[in-house]
Amino acid sequence: MKDKIRTAIYPLVTVAVLVLAWQFAVSEFSIEDYILPKPWLVVTSITDGFRVGGFVGHFWATAEATVLGYVLGCGLAFLIGVAVAESPTFDKFVYPCVVALQSMPKVALAPLILVWFGHEIESRIIMVGLICFFPMFVNTVVGIRQTDPELLDLCRAFSASRRYVFFNAKLPSAAGEIFAGLQIGVVLALIGAVVAEFVASERGIGHMIDSAAVSLTVSNMFAGVIILAVMGVIGTATVRFVERRVVFWEGGTVRVNLEQAS
């Protein structure tokens, strides 16, 4: 527990130092607020923004599109990944296409998605889903395929059904990779949401940053970036928290009972 607190404190020290340096630079070189606002000004824009400036609405708009798109994209990626890993037919027909699509920059599709799905939340959800689909898909396929062949031989030797093998051997073997996909997905989902908001939306943190740029309220732009960073950190931490509980047998969580083992 003490260690945990300590590992949380070290990066906070770094942040504090950076903020101090920022404050120092701004006052030392008398930089104007519309170029680089003082840290304090950014803090007040965040608090004011949440109290009266409509940040709450922006925050929820982004959160909604991100979460829904993430669940949709990752869920579909998982299902199609399972199909590809389990069926040679799907593998032959689908896998090469998906891998080829993967190298395309998905954000380039944003205007097209807009044309097809309009300016409402649907477009943003689809943008988010599309962008977090690929890593999740590839990780699911790779994870299932890297199941220890000897474990599979063993299952076969004991006449295990395909269903048994999938749920008891392949899926747990792939869990680490799948969670890695979910982890990357969180970050990509936010990127997708912000890009979609830049392009089209009237709401969301991305839109807020965009309009702050137009009116040159740089402190609001900083506020937006910081809010997004916090959302990313919360999302990633949530995935990691769930992972540690689900994939308990991997990495560092081994509960060795020395008294018993002796």
Binding site: E150, L151, D153, L154, F158, A160, S161, A169, P172
Partner: peptide
Amino acid sequence: FQRPTLFPWKTVKDNVLLPAETL
């Protein structure tokens, strides 16, 4: 087999029970 080839996510008892379940 040469390696124990156990399921890391199953307890000793559940590992031993594998053939009972599959059969």
